[in-house]
């Protein structure tokens, strides 16, 4: 069953992202919000891990959170707005928030 995972904590201070990646299966999606977008900081370890994910695990990031932190979305991540966020939650069978 395809699940959309929501992350909101920085990978540099919290292990929820690492736990999430262990559960992320084929067809599952990952949406980075809030400080979780720091995982897309270029040349960082989280960036390397995310960029190496198979293509059947689509990656998304909330555009306003990227902009607020001065991070550009790399080509393997789709930046989305809130309207797209809403529609994204309906594309997957369930949504799991890592609080």
């Amino acid at each position: 069953m395809a699940t959309l995972h929501l992350l909101s904590r920085s990978p540099f201070v919290d292990l929820s992202g690492a736990s999430c990646l262990r559960l992320l299966g084929a067809g599952d999606g990952l949406l980075l919000t809030g400080d979780a977008v720091y995982a897309l900081q270029a040349d960082s370890r989280p960036f390397a891990v995310l960029s190496a994910l198979p293509a059947d695990r689509p990656l998304f990031a909330l555009a306003e959170d990227l902009e607020a932190r001065g991070i550009a979305a790399p080509d393997f991540v789709q930046a989305i707005d809130y309207a797209e966020f809403v529609e994204l939650t309906l594309r997957f069978e369930r949504v799991n928030s890592w609080l």
Binding site: S8, R9, G34, A36, V95, S97, W98
Partner: peptide
């Protein structure tokens, strides 16, 4: 609901 969306964290 069709979806429950939880908001927490940072």
């Amino acid at each position: 609901a069709d979806r429950l969306i939880c908001f927490g964290g940072d």
